[in-house]
Nucleic acid binder design. Structure first.
Lengths: 348, 348
DNA sequence: ACATCGAATGTGAGCGGTCACATTACCTGG
DNA sequence: CCAGGTAATGTGACCGCTCACATTCGATGT
């Protein structure tokens, strides 16, 4: 009762009057088994309710067929979607993908140890803003792919949004609507992603012959409340911006809320654009214009890269760095700069 | 190079001049080792960079110290938050929690097999609307806990929101604001959770001496677009409702959007209340009044129950069914019924 | 000085598969 | 009718660890 007494391959063998090896052949689909024998073995398996014991198999094979996805948390839509895509792709390649979260550096180290050093997994997808420091926790040549963040070093593959281009697109969209005084709310500047997006913003401005005004740039945390705060800061300015590029949707939504609370009419008094296209983006007021990121595709590609790396086993195929394009989704939070705007021009 | 050549317990033993068993004792923190010997072993471990091989340990012990959490998907905030709580709690009990998703019945079966029958995990938390049919895929006495859904059968523990009460609270809140014609948007009626919430709604109405009007009940899918649709259906009525109880926030948000698109002034023309309190609930227009669910706590309790069950190993502690209370969070999407409302009374 | 006992350490057998190789069965050609 | 080759099957070791038990060690009491 308390001991389930596992049915083993040898139990099956005994019942089917064959050797344990033949049973092994059957469960692994080897061709070298006479149909008649195979049938007998299959009957025995059925009768005994035999289930292969994965752990023993891992042990003998020295492989687990398992990949892992590690993220700071699982609740963020961004991370979850990437994992979703990765899971799907891993399954297609007959790998099992497990996911776990580690919020801080310490937990991350422990998790990596649990996952990698202990031999539970053959490769890891790291979703992490501070991917590089984290990488240090891994054994030198262990298969790793970064997703949603680019590594500072070249020695590891990555898949992420083309951040620079996306930010340039967002800013250019605002520019094309006539805006000249464009504020930006960044993510934490320690993250490469924030740096890249800031760079894209600057490039777009430069291309339009505008100088960047540091006063128009406010730091955020990726979370909505920081967007709210940033709006208040930007609108405390003598000449406030007529449009804001928020580096992600959550912060953009914070701006929307703050602007409405301040009595602005949107989008006429202020255009707002975000990045991500979160599922509810169309349900805010006004519906959010944003740059859509294909999270699932990032996950899929990361998984594909990882599988290749795991199976290369040594003869490392060169590390790749894939950047996926963003798609501009125009809704109603961005509008042309009103012709008779009081402080529209002469901003620079 | 291609073969990393694992350092084993015996390599360490050789170097430390002890038996492999002594090394095993050291890495398992046994008391029965002389400090001096222990130090020697630890030095050897350090020098060789030995890492215990979890798979072999599982094999020998017959235990994996791993629990799993299975959800229809990982991207839904609801599921992800529960998993988050569960992961935290599992770690506290020295279990490793892995999560995986299975969207349909078939995948679910395969996943369960991969997880349970193969011996990868010792217990499973199932987050699933149709939990019961799914349960069928598991061996009879395997440790399982349902989270966020109640099982129809008694023979399995569960942790979930007190759905009936939550719905009653929501409806009562609307009632207390003077509303008498209250619409409801349900989740898929195949799910127990939707049924329970509908029941709570009916109870509240009954307690107020009101009859339920079937025309005021519209079915949804939990997703925002279905809320949008439902609004249109409800407002096609001769006497539309003055308030709507949506069984979750996403659908409530769909209603908000639809109402604004229809030119209603919120919350004066229509009060809307949801359930969940998703992170961005306060950022919609108007900020959504809702019943807050403590997802992480549900996850934590589920994990705790599961651990207890796994460790009981046979002498099954009675199955428990925990229902957690919801907390009413009043924001600005609900308001008193205007005194001079045209079709406020006489609804019944 | 020696039997006694608990603490420290060692020994070998599994756990349930797979692998490499040995063996047997069966068919074919000369 | 038998050598020769291939298909089908069997054998035993081994993966890296833990377990149950055996053995050795050292201090103690008389």
């Amino acid at each position: 009762m308390s001991k389930p007494e596992r049915v083993t391959i040898r139990d099956v063998a005994r019942r089917a009057q064959v050797s344990h090896q033949t049973v092994s052949r059957v469960i692994n689909g080897s061709q070298r088994v006479r149909p008649e024998t195979r049938a007998r073995v299959e009957d025995a398996i059925e009768a005994l309710g035999y289930q292969p014991y994965a752990i023993a198999r891992f042990m003998a094979r020295g492989r687990t067929g398992t990949l892992a996805c590690v993220a700071p948390n699982l609740t963020d839509y961004t991370f979850a979607s990437i994992i979703n895509g990765a899971e799907e792709e891993a399954r297609r390649h007959d790998y099992f993908l497990l996911s776990a979260s580690a919020g801080n550096e310490e937990t991350f180290g422990a998790l990596m140890n649990e996952l990698v050093a202990s031999g539970r997994t053959e490769g890891v997808i790291v979703l992490n803003p501070y991917a590089d420091e984290r990488h240090a926790h891994l054994p030198p040549s262990f298969p790793v792919v970064f997703a949603g963040a680019r590594p500072r070093e070249e020695a590891v593959s990555s898949v992420a949004l083309a951040d620079v281009e996306a930010a340039r697109q967002a800013t250019t969209h605002l520019l094309s609507l006539g805006h000249r005084r464009i504020g930006m709310i960044t993510g934490p500047m320690a993250e490469d992603c924030s740096q890249d997006r800031s760079q894209g913003y600057e490039q777009a401005l430069a291309a339009a012959g505008l100088e960047v005004d540091p006063a128009l740039i406010a730091p955020g945390t990726w979370l909505a409340p920081s967007g709210y705060e940033a709006f208040r800061k930007l609108f405390g300015l003598a000449i406030p911006p007529t449009a804001i590029f928020a580096q992600n949707d959550q912060m953009a939504v914070g701006v929307l809320r703050a602007a409405r609370d301040a009595g602005l009419a949107l989008p006429d008094d202020l255009s707002v654009i975000g990045v991500d296209d979160i599922p509810l983006a169309a349900y805010f007021s006004p519906p959010l214009t944003t740059l859509r990121q294909e999270f699932a595709e990032i996950g899929r590609q990361a998984a594909r890269l990882l599988v290749k790396q795991v199976e290369a086993d040594g003869e490392s195929s060169r590390h790749q760095h894939r950047r996926l394009p963003a798609e501009l989704v125009i809704r109603r939070s961005t509008a042309p700069l009103p012709a008779l705007a009081p402080a529209g021009d002469g901003a620079v």
